[in-house]
Simulated scan of single mutants.
Amino acid sequence: MPETPSTPADLLAHLVAIDSANPDLVPGGAGETAIADHCGQWLAARGFAVHRLEQRPGRPSLVAVAHGTGNGRSLMLNGHLDTVSLTGYDGDPLAPQIRDGQMHGRGTYDMKGGIAAMMVAATRATAAGALRGDVILALVADEEHASCGTAEVLRSFTADAAVVTEPSNLEVTLAHKGFAWFDVDIAGRAAHGSRPELGIDAIVKAGHFLVALEKLGRRLAQGAAHPLLGTGTLHASLIRGGEEPSTYPAHCRVTLERRTVPGENADSVEQELTALLDHLSATVPDFGYRLTRGLHREPFEADPEALIVKALSRHAHAVLGHPPVVRAEPYWTDCALLDGAGIPCLLFGVRGEGAHAATEYVDLASLDHLTDILTATITDFCS
């Protein structure tokens, strides 16, 4: 059995020392197997029924359940086991160091701190065995890339509510943006550079599209804003085209990202881009295109009157001594998948800094506060 930690910080130190870099982001990355093994043993030793889901070999997610006595509300706590790359970290990313009330190391903030807090909180809340509802811990793979872990969990498990323990500076996060990726392939015609009458320059044609894209971005910025998230945004991420200096390029691809707010989705973005490109086809000579939708995730917005939002906010107020700040995040999280599956949820996690950065740390006092808030929320919601 794994060594028994006495505090969330002790457990976090164990988790940080396990390499769980996402191999979809880092070729040869360790993945989630070792950390899932550790967490599974830790939870099983404390009476949780541990289910291992591994549709993709080497990319396991765990669902650990403490069954209630019956006729109570179930609560899922969700957090991801994977981290981004260890390369480029300032120091040893797998050797947690405590300085000035902060623990430094890869994943301390994003988000092994949240994992440690929810594991300890669930253990404390269920120790007496008096809860009526089930407590469900979803420790998932792959959130840093395509969220295959939470998607796999939701095919087999549900709950009456959920809390995602991504870092939020102990602020109640009730909304976040979505995103949609698109490829725009712009057609030209190859010809020798000395024969302009035969060639169509796909890169030059792409320039018309990039100018139109910039204008669309300005219109979005001036449009109606979501009260927490502001407006959607748009940028060109990649451009590829051409063969050599002496040839008219027959093809140019622009990859773009559109960040969406509630009320927008991948379908509405595709319609927006199609209208822009059709206008260019009608007004720019020899402009031809193909639009292809890539990975997309929808935005998220919680109901502020949901029982789980009210319960967690109440206990956050009690622990922190003041009403928690209500906020939104510009980045995407697994909250959107949970909400899409009909599970009311919110995001609430630790203070710290350095997600995906060369240095990363969690404020240890916030880790204790998070554990206390989650413990009280579980006990309240599942009683």
Rank of each mutant, 00 (worst) to 15 (best):
236 A>M: 08
237 S>L: 06
238 L>Y: 04
239 I>R: 00
239 I>L: 11
239 I>D: 00
240 R>T: 14
240 R>L: 05
241 G>V: 05
241 G>N: 08
242 G>T: 11
242 G>A: 09
242 G>I: 10
244 E>P: 02
246 S>Q: 08
246 S>H: 12
247 T>C: 11
248 Y>L: 02
248 Y>D: 04
249 P>K: 11
249 P>I: 03
250 A>Y: 04
250 A>E: 10
252 C>S: 10
252 C>P: 10
252 C>Q: 09
253 R>Y: 09
253 R>F: 02
253 R>S: 04
257 E>I: 03
258 R>G: 05
258 R>H: 13
259 R>K: 13
260 T>M: 15
262 P>S: 10
263 G>C: 05
264 E>S: 01
266 A>I: 12
266 A>D: 13
266 A>M: 07
268 S>A: 11
269 V>I: 10
269 V>L: 03
270 E>A: 15
272 E>N: 07
273 L>P: 08
273 L>K: 10
273 L>G: 03
274 T>P: 02
278 D>A: 06
278 D>L: 06
278 D>Y: 01
281 S>Q: 11
282 A>P: 05
283 T>I: 12
283 T>H: 06
284 V>K: 01
285 P>L: 10
287 F>T: 00
288 G>R: 13
289 Y>A: 01
290 R>S: 03
292 T>C: 05
292 T>S: 09
296 H>L: 02
299 P>R: 02
302 A>W: 06
303 D>L: 02
303 D>G: 09
304 P>F: 03
305 E>I: 01
306 A>P: 09
307 L>V: 03
309 V>F: 11
310 K>V: 09
311 A>R: 06
312 L>T: 06
314 R>M: 07
314 R>I: 00
316 A>S: 15
317 H>T: 15
318 A>R: 12
319 V>E: 13
320 L>P: 06
